[in-house]
Amino acid sequence: MRSPSNEQKTRETDVDGIHDMGGQDGWGTVAIDPDEQVFAEPWEGRAFALGAMSGGLSGTNLDAFRHSLERLHPLEYLGDGYYGRWLACAELLLVDHGIIPAGAVAARAANLMGGEVEEPTDTSGSKPEYERNGGGSIRQIDEERMFEVGDRIRARDLHRRGHHRMPAYIRGRSGVVTAFRPAAVLPDSTAHFVGEDAQHVYTVTFESTELWGPDAEPATLNIDLFESYMEAIS
């Protein structure tokens, strides 16, 4: 059996995953269905509700939930759609943090389909021990901002292991700070229960030619970046 720390290391190698879709090719087109229901099938609603509750039940948080999405096998990420992802994430968090045994869902599912499978009973892992400094993600911080509106910055060429919120398509690209946003907990830290590391957040504006080359379709891209994702251009 792997120790939790080894498991954590394994998972932290997942950095540029299937989830980071900005700019990918090959997905075809998409149509709007004006008659779409909120949940196409009843199980989707149940999976949504279980996913929404899984953070609280496992003692984790929204950032850990997002990271659990990124830890799914790409086929599992895509296979059962959005609420399939939620279901898989709920199971992942609840198993990781000792609420249900690993393999229990698969065993119960087999039994629900008429199987006679022994269901595991031993849980491992525990709820994370870490402090939150408030509800939600927005925080008041005392540090002065490192950047001003109008500053030219570069999105740092970060290749962080584990959870982060900087899409690959802006790495190393230059843009302009166009708005201050409320300081917020850093997802990179919060998702891994090592602290909140609240930081200033900025909206940064990139031109499409900077992101996609000189032949890019003309457009402007605004994205929100945490201060540690940014470096000044001198």
């Binding site: 099938e41 009843p42 199980w43 149940r46 999976a47 279980l50 039940l57 059962d80 609420y83 399939g84 279901l87 709920a90 199971e91 609840l94 609420i99 249900i100 229990a104 869902v105 698969a106 119960r108 599912a109 087999a110 629900l112 389909m113």
Partner: peptide, 16 residues
């Protein structure tokens, strides 16, 4: 060999 999502959802809800 995983079960359909609807069954796995039912399983997780039952366990919890």
């Amino acid at each position: 060999d995983r079960a359909p999502a609807a069954i796995r959802t039912e399983a997780l809800e039952a366990l919890l």
